[in-house]
Design a protein around this nucleic acid. Structure first.
Lengths: 201, 201
DNA sequence: TCAAAACGTTAACAAAAGATAAGAAAAAGC
DNA sequence: GCTTTTTCTTATCTTTTGTTAACGTTTTGA
């Protein structure tokens, strides 16, 4: 995928939140960087401050942290989704998790400093503020739903819901990662799958 | 508590995110409403669109939803914390949860329409966008931490962490609500407490 | 191509959590 | 002040999950 296509994808993503005219786009695009992230390479690592926010143009990444020597996968990002150790990016503190490419990825990134410059820009500062607000609000709602699922649903119910709405996740992600994502062990997920098969059979 | 004090608290809250001069404050304050919410009264109910966002100036509220006839408590807001069925407020869709006063509350609220007017205001639009962005980012991080706790920690570990950092919650909230908040049943929390007591004794 | 690693399932056992019920203590409301 | 409700604990039993290990299959990578 060429640079222009990648940037165009980024523009479309921004425009799904706020309208952007050509002049505004120029101001924004001048700060963007297009790059590749090969499978198994890391976008973020614990102990390091995440200095970039990105968009996954192609590919998929996995968020995980290591506890007691075990990798625990918390999240994934696919095409047209945000890519960042967001807490670290926002707070300027060292992050806690790895972000690793599950496939060869094409990404478009924006540095923290560029972001602040854009916020303070007279031409597009307000629009960038709004864009970031809408992004944050969007992901806030996602997290709210996820917390709600942990509180109100059993692991089996959470997996069933994932079967309905999961889409890409179920096809492209190994099941033991999905187990972590659901808050259970891979063995437990395997048992849940067998239970469901028996019922639906 | 009088209206001026309540408004002053709101101003201080805003100023903990962005600086506000007197002129800007006038523009904002003209849209604010100060009100009381008596114990057990509802700020939001399922099926209704949440048209206001608020600040708890005094008191505490509980967020809960009803599943299979059971109340499940997901969250609390105390003094100087945000108050809203945020997903409903943002998406303009009917909410799913109740927000109920646990104590007699004093609250300051801002309507959705006023919020949009403020965003589009030339004088303080950009500042309001930034304020809301920072608010959303702040709560996004809170939710991220909470999801992370569900994935990486056992209920016992989550309770222990709450003992360290909980503050108000543990003093002012009945334990069966806290159990829900931790994602377990009240009976289970009681057992966890006994296990911890035995160890530390 | 071939050895090594990763992946998913299953089994056996231990630990924890859910469901239900009962009882005591504390708080709320009249 | 007294009754009712709420809150918390405890016990019993069932269900689920975690842990560890084994096994076959698939995928990876040199």
């Amino acid at each position: 995928m060429d640079t222009l296509t990648a940037l165009q994808k980024f523009r479309e993503h921004v425009e799904s939140y706020v309208p952007v005219n050509d002049m505004e786009w120029q101001a924004l695009a001048s700060h963007l960087e297009v790059s590749a992230l090969k499978k198994k390479k890391y976008f973020a690592e614990p102990g390091k401050i995440c200095n970039h926010i990105g968009l996954v143009v192609k590919g998929a990444v996995r968020y995980f942290l290591v506890k007691d020597g075990e990798e625990i996968t918390g999240y994934f990002s696919f095409e047209n989704e945000l890519l960042s150790s967001y807490k670290s990016f926002l707070t300027r503190q060292p992050g806690e998790n790895y972000i690793q490419a599950l496939e060869d990825c094409h990404i478009v990134t924006l540095s923290y400093n560029a972001m602040q410059q854009l916020y303070d820009d007279d031409l597009i500062g307000k629009k960038m503020e709004r864009f970031s607000r809408l992004i944050a609000e969007h992901y806030l709602i996602c997290y709210e739903d996820r917390v709600s699922a942990f509180i109100t649903q059993t692991p089996e119910e959470r997996y069933n819901k994932l079967l309905e709405t999961g889409g890409d996740v179920l096809q492209r992600i190994p099941q033991h990662y999905i187990a972590n994502f659901l808050g259970i062990t891979p063995v437990s997920l395997s048992r849940i799958r067998r239970r469901i098969m028996k019922i639906s059979a």
